[in-house]
Nucleic acid binder design. Sequence first.
DNA 1: GTCTATACGATGATAGAC
DNA 2: GTCTATCATCGTATAGAC
Lengths: 191, 191
Amino acid sequence: MEVKTSKERIFEEAAILFREKGYRAASMRDLSDRVGLKPSSFYNHIKSKEEILQKICLENAKKFVDGMKAIKKESDDPLKQLQAVIRLHVDIAIKDRSSVTVFNDEWKHLSEPFLSDFLKMRKRYEKEFSKIIEAGVKKKIFRKLNPSIALFTILTSLRWIHYWYKPKRKIDVKTLENDVINLLVHGISKV
Amino acid sequence: MEVKTSKERIFEEAAILFREKGYRAASMRDLSDRVGLKPSSFYNHIKSKEEILQKICLENAKKFVDGMKAIKKESDDPLKQLQAVIRLHVDIAIKDRSSVTVFNDEWKHLSEPFLSDFLKMRKRYEKEFSKIIEAGVKKKIFRKLNPSIALFTILTSLRWIHYWYKPKRKIDVKTLENDVINLLVHGISKV
DNA sequence: GTCTATACGATGATAGAC
DNA sequence: GTCTATCATCGTATAGAC
């Protein structure tokens, strides 16, 4: 089996291409070379170039939102929740690096109303993440730091894992999850 | 005083524009609107659009390389060095947010040989950063983690400070420096 | 040093034959 | 559903008048 439709191939190759060159620099002619269809043929399968971007951004946003929802359901312990969120980011980043890169780095090229919708989802996700940290501080499990700084320092290191993680570094998923958790939870210092 | 040459205004406004729209999506016509010169007039001051990108990338790269050099000179203590590097990233990110954003996020649009030169500098910087962590591990000051994971988890949270730090959040520089140091050195957990 | 006019290649997308 | 041919637009950059 492993037989892919043209439509599937378009979306897959586009994610790789958009990651490599950036959405704006990637042309439909570039995509044509990769997919093996003429640019005009794409339009039997998609409405526009931006539709590809929209789908990639939306699908990945859903992965994170759904993941966060499941985590909140599973445990009330802020530390366990934080560890689970870190694993969520690691897993998504590793499973489809191209797709998550486009989601994370190219969303700004969405047009309205997709851009506004995207930003709303994004803010909601950040809010849910923030609640975990706040709960931990309240329970005296977590250090009391400026809430924005704590949230974004952690979230930023998770959001751009795709940027430096390369399969050829041969770091297995479990090590990546555990070491990132270890570092963000306990710090680099031994004392 | 405060009288800026056209050339200065072109580079300043370009940094802001490239940050907002991305290098490829930002046109010379967009820049024209901001600077108040016709696109054709730019070419009395610059050679090409890419020259602007080149200058921004190179200048910022130099800031980091020079900063790292000074830090290594000042102390041999890995912890003090790490703290100083964190302050370096915070200070550069806050002092000129647009410029550092373009440097960090748009370098991929450099053409050769600028791209290769840039990547070489970048790798050297990462190596110098890595040496700090390795020295700390050797002295048993730092936790022993996978070297790539430790390096990039920390470095990533520093490289994208510009992405979430906004002046209107009213976080002062000292708080930002201290909380980021606190979090990365000791972790979010109290225990 | 800035302007108007324009070159001209690349872009996303469409029309219509097969 | 894929192709060839083509369109309208926008991109960076240049020529030459003032």
